Amino acid sequence: MTATAAPRPPGMRAVRIWLTLVAMLIAVMVLVGGATRLTESGLSIVEWKPITGTLPPLTDAQWHAAFDGYKQIPQYRELNAGMTLHEFKTIFWWEWSHRVLGRVIGIAYLLPFLWFLWRGAIAPEWKRALWGIFALGAVQGAIGWWMVASGLSQRTEVSQVRLAIHLTLALIIFASIVWTLRRLSHRPPVPAPGRLKITAIALLAMTFVQLFLGALVAGLRAGRSYNTWPLIDGALIPSADRLWFETPWWKNLFDNHLTVQFDHRMMAYALWALAAWHAIDALRARAGRAASGALWLFAALSLQALLGVLTLLHDVPIDLALSHQAMGIVVLTLAVLQVERLTAPEIVTARGSSATLAKQVG
């Protein structure tokens, strides 16, 4: 694939710095969201006020009003009856921090973006993509409230499916920014066999599936249900009547604690095996930077698997669980970079010579 290079607009270094900072903020937000879930704090704020909700309670009366609102939902009545105001404040601050960080990310994205547009620092072909990322961020805020609302009336926790969608969309936004940053760096594509591109794309797709499955495990607290490894429920592969007892059958994929955790484990094994094959293949093909990227991805997946096992065996302590989640972000980043370096298009310069450069942005 080739494209013709155009004059590069000014200020691209500033654009890359801006996107890097936004990506870092999203990574922090994912971890704060993980801590919010692990501390059972996500339902402590029962209203969605995009503007006025930025300020926390400032007086005793406001704190008691917020606490009274929490007392009306099933989670308080069934799990936390008798909670003190001091204990409520602890979970409130986690959820408030998560929501405020989301607003900060929106501002940190939109205002510099408008500035760069005004200054002409962003090439026309990238404007639509960057507006698309902003739109996904707006949708993410609505999905966050849709997720919280699922736990305010009939449940004592949010829907694990909505939680998984919420996390996956956050990581799609993160991955889109990482991809854009890579393309803005003007790095040359890596000559490599087509099969390496296919396995790299497969690894990225499987990584997103695995992150979705991990969110289901987290939402169901399934990591606390079966705390042995490599056996699960006393076997490497549990019996079919334990994996598929829900009706209709597909509900087991989302509601059955054993099936959800088993799927997460099996996907981890498949990911690790494919990453090992991809690394070996890249080394044999002498694929240069692609081989290095494949080795880094395999190493990150190996560490991620180790953290997952340790988190399981120790009954999901918050430090190990957040380390596992953070490593998942690292794995996703490396998977995105590997696909991009293997699929970057060639550029035909304005003089007509073929340049092995990444796709130009201006």
Rank of each mutant, 00 (worst) to 15 (best):
T2E: 12
A5P: 00
P10S: 10
G11C: 08
V15I: 13
L21P: 01
A27T: 01
A27E: 01
V28K: 00
V30I: 15
L31F: 09
T36M: 05
L38Y: 05
L43W: 03
I45H: 01
K49E: 14
P50G: 06
T54K: 04
T54Q: 10
D60L: 12
D60C: 06
Q75T: 03
L79T: 07
W93H: 08
G102Q: 04
V104L: 15
G106D: 04
G106R: 01
L110R: 14
L111G: 11
W115A: 10
W126A: 08
K127V: 15
A129S: 13
A129W: 10
F134T: 05
V139C: 09
V139Q: 03
V139A: 13
G141L: 09
M147K: 07
A149R: 06
A149G: 05
G151L: 00
S153R: 11
R155E: 08
T156P: 02
L163K: 03
I172H: 06
V178H: 00
V178I: 15
S185R: 14
S185E: 13
H186V: 13
K197G: 04
I201W: 04
F208Y: 12
L213K: 02
L220I: 11
A222C: 13
A222H: 01
L231T: 10
G234M: 07
P238H: 05
S239V: 08
F245V: 06
W249R: 10
W249Y: 07
W250F: 15
N252V: 08
L253A: 14
F254P: 01
D255E: 15
V260F: 03
Q261T: 08
D263L: 15
H264A: 11
A276M: 13
H278T: 05
R284D: 09
R284A: 14
R284G: 12
A290R: 03
S292C: 05
L295Q: 12
L295S: 10
F298K: 04
A300Y: 02
T311V: 10
L313G: 04
P317H: 09
A321G: 04
L322E: 14
I329V: 15
Q338Y: 02
P345S: 13
E346N: 08
V348I: 15
V348L: 12
R351T: 14
S353P: 00
A355D: 13
A355Q: 14
